[in-house]
Design a binder for these strands. Structure first.
Lengths: 230, 230
DNA sequence: GCAAAAGTGTTTCAGGTACACCCATGA
DNA sequence: TCATGGGTGTACCTGAAACACTTTTGC
């Protein structure tokens, strides 16, 4: 028999909403879907669901994320809790937002069909239901602050990528253009990339060399107390 | 008759916990209290309480904060949601943490007695119940990142303060010592302080001039797109 | 007159920013 | 051969960090 310590207290539905970001065609994209249930059924929405009793809120977010993407083991962090009384037009729901950075190539497109989900460019984000636009905005803020200091951007790319791609990723995060010489200089100073022999010739005739992120070296540098700023 | 949109979903107790920080005797202090209820009654705890149905989570945090301090209109921001299954030993409770920066002089000490609350130095923080130590740690992280970029530190001081005091505040936040010449130079460059004629002679024979934060000037500079880093 | 804290400048160095041309290749 | 995107180096400037002595005044 479980003791009930806290009596006569109100309880609440708790949801987890996922801001799922990918990088595609040189732009940040966000996964949105047509809402499956009333109210606002059919409206553009983030991927969300209710927290179940036997799971932590982090676990709920991971479960929901997996249901919509088919991806597991992903970079995911909390954005914050959203608790305005009427934020959800259905009932009182407190929502915890999480953002995830995914390599869009691993994304299971069959699930996208099932949930009527699609990737939209961040720059062309439609009006979303409830306070979901605010969640996205808050996420971008976190991303900008965090990407400056930690190499989280690599989560959005595959194992190998070209410098022009990496640069447009950062331009997309900061929403401003960067001088390519300065960008490359800074990266080379950091010494956390490994140049490969192969070239990507898909976007130019000359071709751009592939690089890969050297996590070992990065961890090593961090351990030495070095700081980054990208 | 209210429509119930979401059925068969689990619901949860939701709490708000407040990390209340003040600055006293050249150190950051945190308000902690002896927990009033089981389980862990008598353990050191943050100021917390349950969210009630008719209030948003922000409102709940403000209410709880007011109950314990007697202060209103305070700088307060969310830290995040804590939702491990067994984080609260009593029942499943999801907690939203908020931090508040207060001028310790406005604090109503009679309330402190009522709740068996006291200010403890951050450097000598005791073991707290549940995951409250993690909440504090996360708050310090936020504070360090934020104080570097926004003049939030002034919320911890009265209208007027001396530069040595301001410096120890920042030293306390960053938990490292700062060269006073560099500190002053940077502040003067920013041009957001106003020097007063009066001196504080409480901590030295010579006395230190009082300054006040010039919010108008600060807002003006921000509007011009200037950035700070302290 | 001395102890104790307040106040004050200069030099050095690293990192940020601005900027323009050549290279490799497929069509 | 030309159009397209990839790749490279330098000069300047700002801001961070290191560093030591003088001033005031209560005791």
């Amino acid at each position: 028999m479980t003791a009930t310590f806290y009596q006569n207290k109100d309880s609440f539905l708790v949801a987890a909403d996922c801001i799922i970001m990918g990088f595609h065609e040189n732009e940040l994209n966000i996964l949105v879907s047509r809402r499956q249930i009333e109210p606002l059924k059919g409206g553009w929405s983030l991927m969300g669901g209710f927290v179940n009793a036997p799971e932590s809120i982090d676990e709920a977010a991971e479960r929901i994320f997996g249901e919509f993407t088919g991806i597991k083991d992903i970079f995911m962090e909390q954005v914050g809790a959203y608790g305005e009384i009427n934020r959800d037009l259905g009932e009182r729901v407190i929502s915890i937002a999480y953002y995830a950075l995914v390599n869009i190539d691993e994304f299971d497109t069959s699930l996208a069909e099932k949930y009527d989900a699609r990737w939209v460019r961040l720059t062309q984000l439609p009006e979303l239901v409830f306070d979901h636009n605010k969640m996205v905005k808050d996420t971008i803020g976190i991303l900008q602050r965090k990407a400056a200091v930690k190499p989280i951007g690599f989560n959005l790319l595959g194992d190998q990528f070209t410098l022009p791609t990496l640069q447009s990723l950062y331009e997309s995060i900061y929403q401003e253009s960067i001088d390519k010489r300065n960008f490359r200089k800074k990266l080379m100073t950091m010494d956390i990339l490994e140049k490969l022999d192969e070239k990507d010739k898909s976007s130019s005739k000359k071709g751009a060399f592939y690089y890969k992120f050297n996590k070992e070296k990065y961890d090593q540098l961090i351990q030495q107390g070095l700081h980054f700023s990208l």
